[in-house]
Amino acid sequence: MPTLFALVAILLWSTLALLGSQLTHLPPFLVLGIALGVSGLVSFFWPKAWQIPWKTLAVGVGGIFGYHFLYFRAFALAPAVEANLINYLWPLLIVLLSPLVLPGMRLHWRHAWGALFGLTGAALIITGGQWSLQARYLPGYLLAGAAALTWALYSLLSRRLSPFPTAAVTAFCAAGSLLALAFHLASGGSLTALATLPFHDWLLLLLVGTGPMGAAFFFWDAALKKGDPRTIGALAYLTPLLSTLNLALWAGQRLTWVHGAALVLIVTGAVVGSWPARPSLSREPAARQPSTPP
């Protein structure tokens, strides 16, 4: 069941690029504020959502808002291809940091190899096999890396914290929405454009807020609380692959051999990373059979 929850979250996240590509004419933090506001609105009708410790709320808001804040700032300071590639270190970081954050977790070779296969496949999809890092974009690269680390830590700490209901995710979204709108206004934006937004834009914002920036967070929270983060981290590399397939199906993006190679790598990584461990053989000697009398 946790794997299924993770796959549902991944499927929802794979629609974000398609939906977001039609909202690029709007300021990113305005989109983020409205989308998180849609998903966070439920918290005001769900009292249990706010009945959580301050530490839990801080981790939740820091994860959801903090990740997107760093993500958008990275894209403003560095080329999209390289920033997105560095951002997709977060599934690998989930795998590598699991033993450090979660007591009792051990890193096995299959988890590390699965994440590395997935990262290689994601790199092919994002870059098309061509990319270069330039020193002048270092601040953007660092912010993209910080975004990846933020989401990885949020995903792991949500399991390390005292148990809290998944309903609390709506409170994380509500608080994140207010912070996103505050940053939009503080950076010179306004809310007057909302009055003139066409119905099509509002529909897209509603879809983003209920899907990739809404329900996906709930499924991800449930998956990480009950599942193996090392396996889920390897599966997460399906996100850029499915996102590209969505763009190919609905937005006319052309698929190439690079995407085919990435498909093989990501699927291989998902299989290797989720491969069940062989049961350990007992070292105790087998019980002797009673000797039969002559």
Rank of each mutant, 00 (worst) to 15 (best):
A78H: 04
L203I: 13
A76C: 08
Q130T: 13
T210Q: 06
L191D: 04
W151R: 01
L207I: 14
L70H: 01
I10N: 00
G214A: 07
L93I: 04
I232Y: 10
P290V: 14
P290C: 09
P165N: 10
L36G: 05
P285M: 08
A182N: 08
G252Q: 01
W54D: 07
F44N: 02
L116R: 00
W54L: 14
V258L: 14
P91R: 03
L124P: 02
W131P: 03
F199I: 12
L205Y: 10
H108P: 03
Q22F: 10
R106P: 03
Y71A: 00
I94L: 09
L107G: 05
T231S: 15
T120N: 07
A144Y: 07
L203Y: 09
G233M: 09
G233P: 08
G33Y: 03
G176M: 06
S274R: 15
P139K: 05
S280P: 09
S243N: 07
L153R: 03
P293C: 12
W275L: 11
V95C: 09
F44K: 05
D221V: 06
S291D: 13
I232E: 13
H200C: 03
E284N: 14
W151M: 09
S190T: 15
A195T: 13
A277Q: 15
Y141W: 02
G129H: 06
A251C: 00
S21P: 08
G37M: 07
F218L: 15
Y67D: 01
L93Y: 01
L16C: 10
W220H: 04
I266W: 02
L207K: 07
A122L: 05
I125C: 10
M213N: 12
L156N: 02
T120H: 05
G227H: 12
Y137V: 07
